[in-house]
Design a protein around this nucleic acid. Structure first.
Lengths: 157, 157
DNA sequence: GCTTGACCTCAACTTAAGTTGAGGAAGTAG
DNA sequence: CTACTTCCTCAACTTAAGTTGAGGTCAAGC
């Protein structure tokens, strides 16, 4: 196979640790790009490895590919990408990550509170009623504690 | 519509804040149960509202329905479910949540470090190399910094 | 007596992130 | 020359968690 002209899809797959099909997939989604040689085979710039690494980190942060693609659209046309650009993405995704962590922590604190009180699913429970809908009479879990005692009716009592 | 015999699917949907189709779906997945009246209409015990509330909290924690169903399989046959049981589930999922938070925090710390050093995708980067595969020569992102400088070959240099 | 509303079932569609497989071309090793 | 490997495209399948729609039943209200 012709050397000269960049990395083959197989090399990219092996070195980035993802499957060839995933490399194809990322390309279809516009996350990475390649040029074709005369045999219509993809050739990648080595910077694609950096990009794939970024993609993987972003995915672990929980960013969907669509958003990763959007963020990467703001990058200059390949060779001009600098460390500054990676830093920007990094900061952006760190903020996302902070949000996610904060949300999970609030949830955890709620859970911890509920372990003590055993209130899970009660109408005053922050966990079940995260938006504090109580009293709005809109849909959402309510009246739960009112129902539980008078089980009457079920099984035909 | 006959009153007597428990909540209708519409009532469950409205009071739990999920769609009727979702109630059906949860039932198909074995997460909740109903009995049928003579018109073949579902009738639910009010405890189903509690269960759905639990399902929603667990989902927000990030537990897939399959696992929620498994956990709920350990619950006694309906009416015998006590606050103790909810507490057990709560504790179990709090642990899951702690893990999830810890993982995200490690990731965040890695990101923060990378913002300073601009190393994203370097071979020494904990983020890109979470398992510290460096030197194993196995697949995974490596050599990245070795490649970047000598871009030669691409575009035919 | 007919329309309306809530319910029923079953099948197909949706999104995300890929994987798997069929069918074919092209370059390399023996 | 033939076999092997890598590559190509395109279509279909996968899982999760539901939603949407078609076609049908049943009781109530006017």
């Amino acid at each position: 196979m012709k050397r000269r002209g960049g990395l083959t899809v197989g090399e990219v797959a092996e070195r980035s640790g993802i499957a060839v099909s995933a490399v194809h997939f990322y390309e279809r989604k516009g996350l990475i790009a390649s040029v074709r040689n005369d045999a219509n085979h993809r050739r990648y710039s080595p910077t694609v490895l950096r990009k794939i690494a970024i993609i993987q980190v972003a995915q672990r942060v929980g960013i969907p590919l669509r958003e990763i693609a959007e963020a990467m659209d703001f990058l200059p046309p390949e060779e001009k990408v600098t460390v500054k650009h990676w830093e920007k993405l990094s900061i952006r995704w760190t903020d996302d990550l902070d949000d996610r962590i904060a949300r999970l922590q609030r949830l955890r604190d709620g859970m911890a509170g509920c372990i003590g009180c055993g209130c899970l699913s009660m109408d005053t429970c922050k966990l079940v009623n995260p938006d504090d809908k109580i009293g709005t009479n809109g849909p959402g879990p309510r009246y739960l504690e009112e129902d539980a005692p008078e089980v009457e009716g079920f099984v035909g009592t």
